[in-house]
Measured scan of single mutants.
Amino acid sequence: MKVIFLQDVKGKGKKGEIKNVPDGYARNFLFKKGLAVEATPANLKELE
């Protein structure tokens, strides 16, 4: 799953980066803790 990092995550990505991460990791950790959002067209547009 492609995500946009909202904060630096040690060993995974830095704020503003767009990266592919495993689905479970994204849903169960990154999204729940507010560290990233899914890289949807709407979210990508907001990032610009």
Rank of each mutant, 00 (worst) to 15 (best):
L44A: 05
Y25E: 07
A26D: 06
K15M: 09
M1E: 02
F29N: 08
Y25V: 07
D8T: 10
E48V: 13
Q7I: 11
F29S: 06
A39G: 03
E38M: 09
I4H: 02
A36E: 01
D23N: 13
A39S: 05
N28R: 10
L30S: 00
L30R: 00
K15V: 08
L30K: 00
A39F: 12
L30A: 01
E48P: 09
T40E: 05
L30N: 00
V21E: 03
K14T: 09
A36D: 00
V3R: 00
K2N: 12
N20H: 14
E38R: 09
K32T: 11
G16T: 02
D8A: 07
K33V: 10
A26V: 07
F29A: 06
G11S: 07
Q7T: 13
E38P: 12
T40W: 04
L6P: 00
M1V: 14
N20L: 14
V37A: 09
F29M: 07
K19H: 11
K15G: 03
K19N: 04
P41W: 11
G16I: 01
A42L: 09
L35Y: 12
K45D: 09
F31N: 02
K45A: 13
E17A: 06
E17W: 03
M1S: 04
V9E: 01
V3Q: 00
I4N: 01
V3Y: 00
G24W: 15
L6K: 06
K14R: 13
A36R: 00
K15W: 04
F31R: 01
E38A: 12
K10Q: 13
L35N: 01
A36V: 05
V3H: 00
N28K: 11
V3F: 00
K10H: 11
G11E: 05
E17G: 02
V9R: 01
K15L: 06
V9L: 06
A36S: 01
K19Q: 07
I18K: 02
Y25G: 03
K45W: 10
K32I: 14
A42F: 07
K14D: 06
A26Q: 05
P22F: 08
D23E: 15
Q7W: 09
F5K: 00
I18M: 07
M1G: 03
G16K: 02
K12A: 15
D8E: 08
N20T: 15
Y25L: 08
E17P: 01
F31H: 02
G13T: 03
K15D: 02
K45G: 09
L6F: 03
L6M: 08
N43F: 10
E48H: 13
Q7H: 13
G11D: 09
L44T: 07
L44M: 11
G13D: 01
L35R: 02
K10M: 12
K33A: 12
E17R: 02
K2L: 15
T40Y: 05
K12R: 14
K15T: 08
K32A: 14
D23T: 14
E38W: 06
V3M: 02
K2Y: 15
K45Y: 10
F31Q: 03
M1T: 11
N28Q: 09
D23M: 14
Y25R: 04
G11F: 07
P41Y: 12
K2P: 08
A42K: 11
K32N: 07
D23P: 13
V9S: 01
F5Y: 07
N28T: 07
E38N: 04
Y25Q: 04
E38K: 07
L47I: 12
N28G: 10
K32R: 12
Q7L: 11
A39V: 09
K15Y: 06
K32G: 08
E48A: 14
F29T: 10
M1W: 05
A36M: 01
A39E: 02
G34K: 09
A36Y: 00
P22A: 10
M1A: 05
V3N: 00
K2Q: 12
N20E: 13
M1K: 06
K32D: 10
Q7S: 09
E17I: 03
Q7F: 14
K12T: 12
E46I: 15
A26H: 03
D8Y: 08
F31S: 03
K32Q: 12
I18G: 01
E48M: 15
V3K: 00
N20A: 11
A42H: 12
F31L: 14
A39R: 01
K10S: 11
P22R: 08
K19M: 10
P22E: 12
V21F: 09
A36W: 01
A36I: 06
V21H: 01
E17V: 04
L30H: 01
F5P: 00
K19L: 15
I4Q: 03
L35K: 03
K32Y: 08
G11W: 07
L6S: 03
D23Y: 14
K15E: 05
T40N: 09
N43Y: 08
K14W: 09
D8P: 05
G16E: 02
F5T: 00
N20F: 15
P41T: 13
N20Q: 13
K2M: 15
G34T: 03
A26P: 01
L44W: 06
I4Y: 08
K15F: 06
L6A: 02
E17F: 03
V21W: 02
N43R: 12
K33S: 11
E46W: 15
K33E: 15
V37G: 02
M1I: 15
L44S: 05
Q7A: 14
K14N: 10
G16A: 03
V21D: 01
F29D: 13
Q7K: 14
G11M: 06
F31I: 12
K19T: 07
K12V: 15
E17Q: 11
G16Y: 09
I4M: 08
K12I: 15
K12P: 01
F5L: 07
I4R: 04
L35W: 12
K19Y: 07
K33H: 15
I18H: 04
G34A: 07
T40S: 09
F29K: 08
K2V: 14
R27K: 14
E48K: 10
G16R: 03
G24R: 12
K45F: 10
G24K: 11
E38I: 08
N28H: 12
N28F: 10
K2G: 04
R27Q: 10
E48I: 14
Y25K: 04
K32L: 14
K12N: 08
K15P: 04
K10L: 14
N43D: 06
K45P: 06
V9D: 01
T40V: 06
A42Q: 11
M1Y: 06
G11P: 03
I4D: 00
I4E: 02
F31P: 03
Q7M: 12
A26T: 07
A42V: 10
K33T: 11
P41V: 13
K45L: 14
L35F: 10
G13H: 10
D23F: 13
V3W: 01
K15I: 09
F31W: 02
I18T: 06
L47F: 14
F5M: 03
G24D: 15
N43W: 07
A26Y: 09
M1H: 04
A26I: 06
E48S: 13
E46M: 14
K32M: 13
E46R: 14
D8I: 03
L6W: 02
R27S: 05
L6N: 02
K10W: 14
E17T: 06
L44N: 05
D23A: 15
I4T: 01
A26R: 02
L35G: 01
G24T: 13
I18N: 01
K33Q: 13
P22K: 09
P22H: 09
L44R: 08
E38V: 08
E48W: 09
T40F: 06
N28L: 11
L30T: 00
G16M: 05
P22Q: 09
L6E: 01
L44V: 12
L30P: 03
F5A: 00
P22N: 10
G13F: 12
L30G: 01
F5S: 00
K12G: 13
E38L: 12
N28I: 07
T40I: 06
G16P: 00
K33P: 02
E46K: 15
A39I: 05
L47D: 06
T40L: 05
K19W: 08
A26S: 04
L35I: 06
F31E: 05
E38G: 04
N43H: 09
F5W: 02
P41E: 14
A39P: 03
K15Q: 10
A39K: 02
Q7E: 13
M1F: 06
G13A: 11
P41D: 13
D23Q: 13
F31K: 03
V37N: 02
L30I: 01
K2R: 14
G13L: 02
G24Q: 13
N43K: 11
G16H: 08
F31V: 08
K45N: 11
L35M: 07
K19A: 10
G24V: 11
T40Q: 05
L30Q: 00
P22T: 09
R27A: 07
N43E: 07
G24A: 12
P41M: 11
K12Q: 15
K14I: 09
M1L: 14
L47Y: 15
R27P: 05
G13E: 02
P41R: 09
A42N: 09
I4F: 07
A42T: 11
F29Y: 15
K32F: 09
N28D: 15
D8S: 08
P41K: 10
F5E: 00
E46V: 14
D8G: 05
K32E: 12
G24F: 13
K10D: 13
V3T: 01
G24S: 15
L47P: 06
E17Y: 02
A26M: 06
G34R: 08
A26N: 04
G11Q: 05
E17M: 06
G13Y: 13
D8L: 04
L44Q: 08
L30F: 02
K2W: 15
G11H: 08
V9I: 08
K33Y: 15
L35Q: 03
P41S: 11
E38H: 06
A42Y: 07
L47N: 09
K32W: 07
G13W: 10
Q7N: 07
